[in-house]
Nucleic acid binder design. Structure first.
Lengths: 346, 346
DNA sequence: CTGAAAGCGCTTACAG
DNA sequence: CTGAAAGCGCTTACAG
């Protein structure tokens, strides 16, 4: 089946009526609609998206931009696939399709986005991996493309985002460790300019302050957000003169490499060093001793992102309360054995 | 900047000339072309994709279908992000964009694909997660959409695919284990209808045969392709009456769960049980003792997939030799300590 | 309730 | 080398 014209000819009615029937317009005879739908089904007709998009000025596609940098490829823990389900749950109701736009690692993310937006392949965008200063925010704002970001950024005053509750994580982790007698608490931070690193370190600094503990820059260990980074972090940690008694990790998979390096040196997590991980990851669940970490539902985050995005789109606004511009996504502590010991005064 | 019309007005020339200049047609005055390109750049004009697609009958988009089932979300080891880079490397040359089409977990993959194809959002498709009988092959063949599959299937006589060398993996794994004195060699297989499970088990059966070993169905342990599956596999393996002395794993991350369960029972991989993993995964590199497994380049696989796909597309055929319909992708053995011991006669 | 027609933004024969 | 015009497949006021 080629186009609507062929379908109309086959039914011996006009293309206008076919279109109206297919699109559920009320002003169509029910018998006619039935015939049209049956014929479309039988002949496998589905409207050409380019034709629709061109006419309607919208594509019915939402884009999720992801970056396939070498680091991401090696280490991403399928954060996005998880979020995707939740997003689709929301979008499906409105017959919107979600497409993932992978930015090639050798292309500037902002240029890539500009190209995709200008070509009008999507009606709205979800961006993530927010940088401290992120030109994409400006780009999308100026182009008036509805968008939502997974993560805060210093860029622009006011744009919609949902970010993980790094403050809460840092606060509860520090509190928990302090309660167990720790005074020298290290933290890992990403070596890149991704904004969450800054947010996390700052939250940690404030949490220490609340407990009257000094902030020691040498305890902020900057490494790649990967298992290798975790290994490296443990390595650096072991070399510190006045070795910390606890460490808080920023990235879910770091724990695996960290454990490995610690054990090579006979340092046992949960006995010689308290470890608190970040997001609960399936891969990390098998760690021994079990890792204290924070849990969240990627699916629910996806749903929230989807709803907040649609609330910004004129065509769907009515279905969703604006619900403010942005949101801090809570994480729940999952207590493990990796920080269960009480530190005895050395 | 809205459309080509505005750009043409601004330059006081016709839209035809603007289009030709932008598309690099030779029949344009160089001075004119320069002006057009400069204005487009300055005003941020990029051709609306719907307009182009409609006129040209092609979208310049290649789709990569991925399935975001719960299992995939939990466990996929970013196979696709890795392949993506290689694909883009090939597509970029032809100004083709790669989009990932995530099939919602509650939608039938074949229906989803049908919808995407009928809407004409892509010019060609890459499909994967091939089922034993996969209706998508038929669908795409009949719709005459160029496509390539990552994986074989029993469906249809002749369609283009690249699959991993399960035969070679099974052969070399068995050979290696036999050389170390093993006679009872277990294997894990996926519990689903995914075709690679069948291929792998059959290859294993043949490899045993070559060494005069009997095929014992109880040594084929069917579990989910995940870490949890690996844990489960170890559990079942330990319960076997005549316990095997070696096991070959089908999925990269299984090793993590398997190690965990073995160690809980005081069974040490590489001493009490020989283990050979499948694809080398970053996460598995930290296993202790180090895992013998097979390595491949996802990037190179992506390049090969991209080239083979373009060879099937009339518009790009000339740049690529057809190079046969399909291909077995080799994997290289990475020897570790998990199977390094010689089995002494019990 | 239905049909005829316009037009979304582009590219491309066709004239000149 | 450039312009005017047709037409890709749709949807949607507008008549009737």
């Amino acid at each position: 089946m080629k186009g609507i014209r062929q379908l109309a000819e086959h039914l011996a009615i006009s293309i206008g009526t076919v279109s109206r029937a297919l699109n559920g317009r009320p002003d169509v005879n029910e018998e006619t609609r039935r015939r049209v739908l049956a014929a479309a089904e039988a002949l496998g007709y589905v409207a050409n998206q380019s034709g629709r998009s061109l006419r309607q000025g919208e594509t019915k596609v939402i884009g999720l931009m992801i970056e396939s940098s070498a680091e991401a490829v090696e280490n991403a823990d399928n954060f996005f696939l998880g979020v995707t389900s939740g997003l689709q749950h929301v979008f499906t109701r409105h017959k919107l399709d979600l497409l993932m736009l992978p930015c090639p690692s050798d292309e500037d993310p902002c240029e890539y986005l500009k190209r995709m937006v200008a070509r009008r392949v999507v009606d709205a965008m979800i961006i993530s991996n927010m940088q401290r200063v992120d030109r994409r925010v400006d780009l999308l704002s100026r182009a008036r493309i509805p968008f939502i970001a997974v993560g805060r950024s210093l860029s622009a005053g006011n744009f919609p985002w949902i970010d993980l509750d790094f403050e809460g994580v840092a606060e509860r982790a520090v509190e928990r460790l302090v309660a167990r007698g720790h005074r020298r608490i290290a933290i890992t931070a990403p070596s890149s300019e991704v904004n969450l690193g800054y947010v996390f370190v700052e939250s940690y600094r404030r949490a220490l302050e609340q407990h009257g503990l000094p902030f020691d820059p040498s305890l902020v260990i900057r490494v790649k957000s990967s298992e290798q980074g975790g290994y490296q972090a443990a390595h650096e940690l072991l070399l510190l003169e006045d070795r910390p008694t606890a460490v808080i990790l920023i990235y879910e998979l770091m724990a695996i490499g960290l454990y490995r390096r610690l054990m090579e040196s006979g340092v046992l997590p949960g006995r010689d060093l308290a470890v608190i991980g970040f997001r609960d990851a399936p891969r990390a669940r098998f760690l021994q001793p079990s890792l204290s970490c924070f849990r969240m539902s990627l699916y629910d985050l996806g749903v929230a992102l989807g709803q907040m995005l649609l609330a910004r789109m004129p065509a769907y606004r009515e279905f969703y309360s604006e619900a403010g511009g942005n949101m801090i996504w809570p994480l729940e502590l999952v207590a493990g054995e990796s920080d269960a010991f009480q530190l005895t005064e050395a």
